[in-house]
C-alpha cells in the first residue's frame, strides 16, 4: 500500500466541542460515560440532540451510564481515509458498541487481539486521554458481570 499521502505530522480527527456536547466530553475527562436521558419518559439517546426524540421536549439531563455493552459489529480499516494514523497502525479496529442502555456508539477496542473479537462480545468502557480537552471512551472485554 502506498504511504506517500501519509502526513504523520497531521493529527487524527478530533471532535469539535460545542454547548450541546461539552458535558459528554467533560464526563469522559473525569472517567464518567454519560448520555442524555429524557426526564419525562426516561428514554436515553446518543449521539446528543437538542430534544428527546420520543417526547420532542427539551426536558432532559446527562446521566452516567453503566459503561457496559456488547460489540454489535466491528471492522478492520485498511484504507487511509484520514490523516493521523501512522502506516504501522493499519489496519485499525473500529467497533460499533450496543450500550446496555440501548443506544449505539462507534468506538474502538483495547486489550484484545483482533483474532479474539467477535460480535456480541461483552465490553466495558475505559478512557484514553488525547489532549487536555478530549478523552475518548474506548471499550475492553468485560470480565466481570454487568451488575456492579
Amino acid at each position: 500500500m502506498s504511504t506517500d499521502t501519509t502526513n504523520t505530522t497531521e493529527q487524527k480527527p478530533l471532535p469539535p466541542v460545542n454547548t450541546l456536547t461539552k458535558p459528554f466530553w467533560d464526563g469522559c475527562r473525569e472517567g464518567v460515560l454519560q448520555i442524555q436521558f429524557c426526564n419525562i419518559c426516561d428514554l436515553p439517546w446518543f449521539p446528543p440532540a437538542e430534544a428527546c426524540p420520543r417526547c420532542l421536549q427539551d426536558d432532559w439531563e446527562w446521566r452516567p451510564i453503566s459503561g457496559h455493552g456488547a460489540v454489535w459489529s466491528w471492522i478492520r480499516m485498511w484504507q487511509q481515509y484520514f490523516p493521523g494514523w501512522s502506516p504501522d497502525e493499519y489496519p485499525y479496529t473500529v467497533a460499533l458498541i450496543k450500550l446496555e442502555e440501548g443506544p449505539y456508539m462507534y468506538s474502538t477496542l483495547v486489550d484484545i487481539d483482533d483474532k479474539d473479537v467477535s460480535c456480541d462480545l461483552s465490553v466495558e468502557v475505559e478512557f484514553r486521554t488525547v489532549n487536555e480537552e478530549i478523552t475518548l471512551p474506548v471499550f475492553r472485554p468485560s470480565h466481570g458481570t454487568t451488575d456492579r
Partner: peptide, 15 residues
C-alpha cells in the same frame, strides 16, 4: 472529520 452530529463521534476512531 467531525462536523456533523454523527461524524464527530465517529471520525475520532477513524470510522
Amino acid at each position: 472529520r467531525g462536523t456533523t452530529p454523527q461524524a464527530m463521534f465517529e471520525a475520532p476512531y477513524g470510522m
